[in-house]
Amino acid sequence: MSTPIVDLQGIVTRFGDLLVHDGLELKVERGDIVSLIGGSGSGKTTLLRHLIGLTAPVSGTVMMFGEPLLSGAQHEQRARRRRFGVLFQQGALFSALNVSQNIAFPLRELRVASQAEIDALVLRKLAMVELEPAHALLMPSELSGGMIKRVALARALALEPELLLLDEPTAGLDPDLSLSFVELIRSLHRRLHLTIVLVTHDIDTLMALSTKVAVLADRKIVSCAPVEETIALDHPFVSRFFKAVIDRRRIAPVAGVQD
């Protein structure tokens, strides 16, 4: 068996007196799409921030690509961080740069590609996220919510990452847009052989994307299994989370009351 892309070992996180994670373990294998679910305040976003390396757990190790994330010299850490891309919830586009400059930014910082190559790569990434070259000169403040997500995704893909971390990829998108965004992520996963970890609240996104669902409850990952197995799980949070969908489906026809 190959080394897992992400391996969280005995993660403990504490904010003051509040114990968020207590000996949390999670493995993500190459090619998986793992959805992280959990009640609000259960520390999903904190866990994602550990993965990005923005915060460090009190104890435990975050292993990425078989090595501890925060180990080695500065340049080794930086090289490791370039192997994953992050899509922040609000996109986090640099508001002073236009779309093409935003996508080109990580490539420019790397100082490997020439200007002509950067232009070609920006075109390529724009096409990948199904945007037109004409959008390249727009500023982030001129973009709609769906376009911001796409540009941010293109920027996350700029350095050809192996792993993609998505924080609520479909939050704030209407159902139609969120469906097409999910389709886009799925096709990119297939074409670029990506591994994806996402945090989501949205059941439709979760059902459409995940190969595995990791359930964060009681300060631990209580289960990491395919969707069907997760639904069958006997855990109060899980049954409440998925019961909502089942209820919604049952209520739907009744909702259209005639008057």
């Binding site: 070609a120 920006v122 075109l123 390529r124 070259p133 004409a134």
Partner: peptide
């Protein structure tokens, strides 16, 4: 082929 296709439409420059 994808690269060639996107190359046909140049990136708009300021």
């Amino acid at each position: 082929e994808e690269i060639a296709a996107s190359d046909r439409q140049p990136l708009p420059q300021q």
